[in-house]
């Protein structure tokens, strides 16, 4: 069973080591937050936005795969661990702003919301509003979930002690 697709592997791309501009870093931040958001919650927040811009799809939501890589021994060279389902979508707003979404899973509705939000967040006049009403709350909720879990995990920390055997 082989998966033939024309898109090339990015392989061991090291270009993230190139410093990013402030705009790129901000965009990287919100795209990451959006990818982690539970679909229903994100769509509710999106639907609650007062104004939605007109748009056209550059790429309708489509599901595919990304090969995930790990490192030999956890720290060494790359190897392929297995694939992951990913859904992507690209939109162009009526003012020409382009938004993209790439996220784990097969949720097309979420990918569409995220591509639209990525575009709207690049519009200077809407960025603050959407950061405040969607990105910051989602980020706080994710942090709270992680913290709650990490506190439960911390309760399972154990201190083993070794006993010295008497005979020697």
């Amino acid at each position: 069973m082989r998966n033939e697709s024309s898109s090339p592997d990015t392989g061991n791309n090291r270009s993230w080591e190139v410093p990013l501009s402030d705009d790129q870093r901000a965009r990287q931040g919100w795209m990451g937050v959006l990818s982690m958001a539970p679909s229903a919650r994100l769509c509710d927040l999106f639907d609650a936005l007062p104004e939605k811009p007109g748009f056209e799809f550059l790429r309708k939501p489509e599901s595919g795969l990304i090969m995930t890589q790990g490192r030999v021994g956890g720290t060494g060279g790359a190897f392929n661990m297995g694939e992951m389902t990913v859904t992507r979508c690209s939109v162009k707003l009526s003012d020409g702003t382009v938004g993209h979404a790439y996220q784990a899973g097969r949720d097309k509705k979420k990918a569409r919301c995220c591509a639209l939000l990525d575009a709207m967040l690049q519009q200077p006049e809407r960025q603050r509003e959407i950061m405040n009403s969607i990105i910051e709350p989602l980020k706080a909720e994710q942090a709270a979930r992680d913290l709650a879990r990490a506190k439960k995990v911390a309760a399972t920390k154990v201190d083993f002690f070794t006993l010295v055997r008497g005979e020697d």
């Binding site: 069973m1 082989r2 998966n3 697709s5 024309s6 898109s7 090339p8 592997d9 990015t10 392989g11 061991n12 791309n13 993230w16 489509e62 599901s63 595919g64 795969l65 990304i66 090969m67 995930t68 890589q69 790990g70 490192r71 790359a78 392929n80 661990m81 694939e83 992951m84 389902t85 990913v86 992507r88 790439y102």
Partner: peptide
Amino acid sequence: RTTLARFGSSLPVE
């Protein structure tokens, strides 16, 4: 999985 296109490879997970 054979019905899906591959978009590329991830960066190595840390």
